[in-house]
Design a protein around this nucleic acid. Structure first.
Lengths: 193, 193
DNA sequence: GATCTATTTCGATATCTATCTAATTAGACC
DNA sequence: GGTCTAATTAGATAGATATCGAAATAGATC
């Protein structure tokens, strides 16, 4: 169970997310029951019950014992306990986002607001502005020190309002200043993700 | 959460049994994100994402914050933890069978093998035979003592092979015998459910 | 071997649901 | 007020799935 991909996780959840199957589990929990008995109790036809039991059996949730040609099904309680414990842990949910392409939206924002080097508009929404600021900060080398005149010039290539953008870069901790000298801040320290 | 009917339980499971919704939960777990951002990352259209978020929101799994007309969604981690903990406990599954009409099958067995008072055939399968035996035992009064001759006579009204059935009643602990005297055993002590 | 019964498999259908497009709402800005 | 953007709502469609009837399988009995 340790590592389980999204596909498997979802299929297990789908298996349980069904009234008939849950009731079947309940009915075979206390005593073994035949397909015909279950069909009668649940007011379903045998093929339907048989189908559900096959799926539950595949997941190891029920076991089957033959007596003549009567098939008795019983709950595998330990397997159910295991599933119910491991199925939707918060850690697992968090890990689901790991493989997603979270950069897709940022690329779209850049594409929307940039024409080559030129910034067409400063976004109003903070998150979008952060994306632009990260891009802008990337135009400064790590480790090098810049005079304010240089900073203004570099930002100015992209947008006329270099004063606002310079302040925003500081505010987002993408750049830092001390006694008139500016430098790029390392990514881990910055506010913008 | 204490008591949750099958309907609610299934609907919660259905909510989680979906790849898109699980991924959405993962994506908003670490930071709040807008609908457009989520749509872009997941390669789905905004209406689809909006729809999923609405369902998640309804279940209290995500919260929403407005900034202008941008809607930022974030995970409600405590609610998720609560759900994942309480959703499919083995006790809950067992309780699902409580409201089911488990007598339906037994009535069918009786209907199949009985014609009025007359037992047309003794069932081969143990579980069915048990149902018949319970019915047969019910023809004896609680607390009264019967001579073997009386027992044979009463069983004989239903089936010619009273000897076999008499032995079966003893075997199933539905009736007991001591020095040629027979009596009905209380239901709780018997083997047949 | 023929027959009967319980179950399973197969194929069809009807319902549900995830997704989309188009239209509507709502906020921000000129 | 008009326009633009983001989100939601409404309506339509395609794909999945739960259920059923019919046919096939398998075991037991005669």
């Amino acid at each position: 169970m340790e590592t389980m991909d999204v596909q498997t996780l979802v299929s297990h959840l789908k298996l349980l997310a069904n009234e008939a199957r849950l009731k079947l589990l309940g009915l075979v929990a206390t005593q073994e029951r035949s397909v015909g008995e279950l069909a009668e109790i649940m007011e379903l036809k045998e093929p339907t019950v048989s189908h559900h039991l096959a799926r539950l059996s595949e997941a190891g949730l029920v076991s089957m014992r033959r007596e003549g040609n009567v098939h008795f099904y019983a709950l595998c309680a330990d397997r159910l306990q295991q599933l119910s414990r491991d199925l939707v842990t918060p850690e697992k949910v968090t890990s689901l986002a790991e493989h997603a392409d979270t950069g897709a939206w940022e690329r779209k924002v850049l594409q929307t607001y940039l024409q080559g080097e030129r910034l067409t508009k400063i976004p109003d929404v903070r998150k979008k502005r952060d994306v632009i600021l990260v891009w802008l900060a990337d135009r400064f080398e790590h480790g090098r020190r810049y005079a304010e005149r240089e900073v203004n010039e570099i930002i100015g290539r992209s947008h006329p309002d270099f004063a606002t953008l310079r302040r925003e870069l500081i505010g987002a901790r993408l750049m830092a200043r001390e006694s008139g000298v500016y430098w790029r801040v390392e990514a881990e320290e910055s506010v913008a993700a």
